[in-house]
């Protein structure tokens, strides 16, 4: 990484612990169909299959690849826990993640391919565009949300117990009782 590269990195907008991260590419002429096919294959890989909830990068909330402008452009848009620019070097040394992206990036302009990680890094940073506006409807990191889901599932299991109403009568459990009615 050069000093010039560093200066070019814009941290992007963030809401609480989460920051937005968007990349925009130009599809190579004639590569739209194979790119769509690559994205369709991606959708079938573990983590991207409907209901998997297991993206390889566990600190992103969601990921989408969007072909637009008659399949001449490609966008990759995500939300990342933490300031993404701090983790850029990590991304570029992560074998599995990089391999997955390599299959997609091969169809867009400016990509020279692995194994030249420095070139890939420069290519990705060159495609990043900071959002002009960014908002979220819930706070919390992926880790916190997963924990909240586990806790809620446990709470629902408690409520399904025949003696739940009786068990929740203790004053210490009042905040849970307040959430138990619906």
């Amino acid at each position: 990484m050069t000093a010039a590269d560093d200066a070019a990195i814009a941290p992007g907008r963030s809401v609480g612990p989460t920051s937005e991260f968007s990349l925009f590419f130009r599809v190579k002429p004639g590569e739209a169909a194979p790119l769509r096919a690559a994205l369709t294959s991606l959708q079938d890989t573990p983590g991207y299959r409907p209901g998997d909830y297991g993206i390889t990068i566990q600190t992103i909330h969601e990921a989408r690849f969007v072909l637009f402008d008659d399949d001449t452009r490609l966008a990759f848009i995500t939300s990342f826990d933490g300031p993404w620019e701090a983790y850029m070097d990590d991304f570029f040394t992560s074998g599995p993640t990089l391999a997955l992206f390599d299959a997609v990036f091969n169809h867009v302009e400016g990509y020279e391919g692995l194994p030249d990680v420095a070139a890939v890094r420069s290519f990705v940073l060159g495609a990043e565009q900071g959002a002009a506006a960014y908002a979220r409807n819930y706070g919390g990191t992926v880790k916190e949300i997963r924990k909240a889901q586990r806790v809620n599932a446990a709470f629902q299991a408690v409520l399904d117990h025949p003696q739940a109403a009786e068990a929740l009568q203790h004053p210490a459990l009042q905040p849970l009782l307040d959430e138990a009615a619906d």
Partner: peptide, 8 residues
């Protein structure tokens, strides 16, 4: 987690 390389 796929996002951190501790060695860096």
């Amino acid at each position: 987690e796929g996002s951190v390389d501790v060695r860096l």
